[in-house]
């Protein structure tokens, strides 16, 4: 008896739920501005029926990447819900081909490749696959999300608002970079991992011919959330979440990870050259001191702790080799 009654109760409740659902479907959707008519909404959605963003980004890094840069990569992975992370890849000459294959295997349409060289320099490749273009950046001023001074936090997978400074529209290469960045960093609408709110904002700003990246959380005082139209916007504050980095574009290639060079940064100096330059300056400084103090060349250099490093022959050799950067 008891069982029967339970069943009947269940049925009744399910019927109730059904009724409720029907009822709720019939009700027009309530929004901040009031009641919304259904047909208007449908119209809007039908505006561009053919377009659907299916961007997928492959994120990988090179072997022997240092932990700081690896953490940066992991942070990027955490803020891009539409990305796929893959194993480390040897950064050899042939890495372009391997990467292209990998991207195709993973069904991705673009790629972020963090390449660490000499345990100190980080290069970032952004590529649209399979047929280009691709960009190579030098990454500076890296701060990861783990740093405690970045106090913000936001939903994992919510779609960011991308803000660009207007000087992205000045030159064609900046325009191209802007397009690539919007496609890679913008989370596709209705992505299955994306959440339906917007609680963080990305900043891409060109200052001093570098692209600076920032990620802020949008925080509105709790009781103001439903009053944004009535001055809640003024009380909005931003809290930085991280990561931070600064991209210095080096080259833009026509294809993905290769192809004809379309753009070359005329101001760019590779970090290797910078180091050599400093070393050379120091060497010259020593020579002059030696001359002034009437010290013998060998005597001065012999007294230095790292005799071999400052030996002039090694220096000139190093210097010549540094021209063949990439």
């Amino acid at each position: 008896m008891a069982k029967k009654r339970k069943q009947s109760e269940k049925e009744a409740s399910s019927e109730l739920i059904k009724k409720k659902e029907e009822f709720s479907v019939e009700r027009p959707k309530r929004t901040l501005l009031g009641w919304k008519d259904k047909d208007v909404e449908e119209k809007k959605q039908n505006d561009s029926p053919f377009f659907r963003n299916k961007e997928k980004v492959l994120v990988t890094c090179s072997r022997r990447i240092i932990f700081r840069y690896r953490h940066l990569m992991l942070n990027v992975v955490s803020i891009l819900p539409h990305c796929k992370k893959d194993n480390k890849i040897d950064s050899k000459e042939s890495k372009g081909g391997a990467l292209n294959e990998l991207v195709e295997l993973k069904n991705c349409s673009s790629c972020l490749f963090f390449e660490c060289r000499k345990q100190k320099d980080l290069y970032l490749w952004m590529a649209k696959c399979p047929n280009g273009p691709s960009v190579k950046f030098l990454v500076n001023a890296v701060h990861t999300m783990e740093e405690l001074k970045l106090t913000g936090n936001h939903l994992k997978g919510s779609r960011p608002i991308l803000t660009f400074s207007t000087n992205f529209d000045n030159d064609p290469h900046w325009k191209l970079l802007k397009e690539i960045i919007t496609q890679i960093f913008g989370v596709p609408k209705d992505h299955r991992k994306a959440k339906p709110f917007h609680d963080h904002v990305f900043v891409f700003s060109i200052v001093d011919d570098h692209i600076w990246f920032r990620n802020y959380q949008i925080s509105v005082p709790h009781n103001e959330i439903d009053k944004v139209d009535r001055g809640g916007l003024d009380k909005m504050t931003l809290v930085e979440v991280g990561p931070r980095f600064c991209l210095n574009p080096i080259k833009i290639f026509g294809g993905s990870f290769g192809g004809p060079t379309l753009y070359e940064n005329p101001y760019y100096v590779s970090p290797n050259q910078v180091r050599t330059h400093v070393l050379l300056a120091f060497c010259h400084f020593l020579q002059i001191i030696a001359k002034r103090c009437d010290l013998g060349w060998d005597l001065l250099y012999g007294s230095l702790p790292h005799y071999k490093i400052f030996k002039p022959t090694t220096l000139s050799f190093k210097h010549q080799s540094s021209q063949h950067e990439y």
Binding site: F50, F51, N53, I161, T163, P172, L176, I180, G186, L262
Partner: peptide
Amino acid sequence: IYNRDGLLERLQDISWPDNVEWIHKLTID
């Protein structure tokens, strides 16, 4: 190297159609 035409051509190639709604991009200048 600064290949202006090449850059613009590539931009044309990869950019989304013009009538894409803003909600897909979420970009603000």
